[in-house]
């Protein structure tokens, strides 16, 4: 009888010690590679500069812009309200805390979209949801929002609607902020666009 107990004791000890060897990686939580690949091949992560502009103008509280360029570039120019997290500092203490907050859309922004997309893949690997990439990046932002080009006269009306929106956004982002009287104007103009559902386009 005692021999039985000894056997059980030894077996239980072995099993318990065995758990020590189960997990060897100290990596933070990651999603399975297959799942990552599934997410990567879907283009749903891209948002256009127009969508971002619209959210900024409307003061959408669920928008968090994360600028992944270097700190120097960020100091020189950045979108209003964006946070600077250069790629090399992505894993630093506290930076991951910006991501995965329920109800918050994180939009990655870089000069063009490559670095932002890389950041997206990396955060996705860590299982973060609700992140997006601004397609075209700041280069496209300049071409579409800051200096939009006028469509031809015979272009479809949706292009003209888009142009009108961009023109309004241009005023908003390039100086209307200081002139308080213009604020209401912009607000009204943008609200109106909502019905026509600004078409994506540009870069």
């Amino acid at each position: 009888m005692n021999r039985n107990y000894i056997l059980l004791t030894v077996l239980m000890l072995v099993l318990a010690v065995g758990t020590l060897f189960l997990t060897t990686d100290d990596e933070p939580k990651q999603i399975a590679p297959e799942e990552l690949l599934q997410q990567i091949i879907q283009p749903t992560r891209y948002v256009t500069t127009d969508q971002v502009a619209k959210m900024i103008i409307q003061g959408d509280p669920s928008l968090l812009m994360v600028d992944v360029r270097s700190a120097d570039e960020y100091d020189e120019y950045a979108l209003p309200g964006s946070v600077n997290i250069p790629l090399e500092e992505l894993l630093n203490e506290g930076n991951m805390g910006y991501f995965g907050v329920p109800g918050v859309k994180v939009v990655f922004i870089s000069n063009d979209d490559i670095r932002a997309d890389q950041t997206w893949v990396l955060t996705k690997r860590l299982g973060v949801d609700g992140t997006y990439v601004m397609k075209g990046g700041l280069n496209c932002w300049m071409q579409t929002i800051i200096e939009p080009s006028q469509p031809d006269a015979d272009a479809p009306s949706v292009d003209h609607a888009l142009y009108a929106f961009r023109k309004g956004a241009q005023i908003y982002f390039t100086g209307a902020e200081s002139a308080t009287t213009d604020d209401g104007n912009v607000e009204v103009q943008v609200r109106r666009r909502e019905k026509t559902n600004v078409a994506a386009g540009g870069c």
Binding site: S110, N111, N139, Q170
Partner: peptide, 28 residues
């Protein structure tokens, strides 16, 4: 090459006092 600014952002997006709609559309 990607990852480089193609424009001088700060200059382009600088506040344009009053002149909200500059007529020269094609200057890119």
């Amino acid at each position: 090459f990607s990852g480089f600014p193609r424009f001088n952002y700060a200059e382009m997006a600088a506040p344009k006092d009053g002149s909200e709609l500059n007529a020269d559309q094609d200057n890119k």
